[in-house]
């Protein structure tokens, strides 16, 4: 999977490394901004009320 991505990135080794880094950062951003906020309420830390509104 990662090998496949690496082989399909353009440019020299350094350019590829840079693109990889940007890709990783983009994935982390999407996770923190969208995926985790969606997943987090599924865990029990939010249940602090007595009427479960």
């Amino acid at each position: 999977m990662y090998g496949w991505i690496w082989r399909h990135l353009p440019g020299s080794v350094w350019v590829r490394a840079l693109i990889s880094l940007v890709l990783v950062l983009a994935v982390v951003y999407v996770l923190f901004q969208y995926i985790f906020p969606w997943a987090e309420p599924l865990l029990p830390f939010n249940d602090v009320t007595v009427d479960n509104q």
Partner: peptide
Amino acid sequence: LFVVYVLFWT
């Protein structure tokens, strides 16, 4: 990453 998010980032 998720643990970091829950413990720290929230």
